[in-house]
Computed example of a mutant assay.
Amino acid sequence: MFRELRRNKQILSHGECIEILQNATSGVLAVLGDDDYPYAVPLSFAYDEDRIIFHCAKAGHKLDAILKHEKVSFCVIDKDDVVPHEFTTYFRSVVLFGKAQLIEKEDAKRKATEILCKKYQPTGEGIEEEINKSIDHMQVVQINIEHMSGKEAKELVMRRGTE
């Protein structure tokens, strides 16, 4: 169903993909938008147990697209070092596909929001107050990951082989 990467020597392991998702602070969500045009939007997120969690307004283009068509793609760039004299970039990235689902139940919504908050406020300070203040004014969404792949530049692969 999902295409395999052509350059299999550049494929990142599942564990490396997870590590990138755990450490990245932003990614790009791609949905089927208005009039079936692709719509890609950067957002903050958290990875948790084979799902991506993010929040958004209770109305808007992104949410309308998800409600219309649950299948989405999400991309995270971990490394993007331009190497001018080689006319290339040394990159690492993860692309995933899944189904977006609104988190509606109050306890699940609070737990997901807490996971998201802890990623960006690791000390936990002020999280409960912020959730209480914001929870009624936002929509929390999860992407249930169905397929994930990661890839890195061949130069990084070669560098790893010599270390």
Rank of each mutant, 00 (worst) to 15 (best):
F2T: 02
R3I: 07
R3N: 12
E4F: 09
L5P: 10
R7T: 03
N8A: 09
I11E: 12
L12E: 02
L12H: 03
S13G: 08
E16F: 02
I20P: 01
L21E: 04
N23A: 13
T25E: 13
S26P: 03
V28I: 15
V28F: 07
V31N: 06
G33S: 07
D35M: 12
D36E: 10
P38V: 06
A40K: 07
V41H: 02
V41I: 15
L43V: 05
F45A: 05
F45Y: 15
A46E: 06
Y47A: 04
D48M: 08
C56L: 07
K58P: 05
A59P: 00
K62T: 09
D64K: 15
I66W: 05
I66P: 04
K68S: 15
K68F: 09
S73R: 03
C75A: 13
V76S: 02
V76I: 11
V76W: 03
V76M: 00
I77Y: 01
I77G: 00
D78N: 14
D80A: 11
V82M: 14
V83L: 07
P84L: 12
H85K: 13
S93K: 08
V94K: 02
F97A: 08
K99V: 02
Q101G: 02
I103A: 04
I103T: 05
E104L: 14
K105Y: 07
K105S: 14
E106C: 00
T113E: 11
E114M: 10
I115W: 00
I115C: 09
Y120N: 03
Q121H: 10
Q121A: 11
P122Y: 07
P122E: 09
T123P: 04
T123Y: 01
G124L: 01
E125S: 11
E125R: 12
G126Q: 02
E128R: 13
E129H: 11
I135P: 00
V140K: 06
I143L: 02
N144W: 05
N144V: 14
I145H: 01
E146I: 00
E146V: 00
H147Y: 15
H147W: 09
M148W: 02
A153R: 00
L156G: 07
V157K: 12
V157T: 14
R160V: 07
G161W: 06
E163G: 10
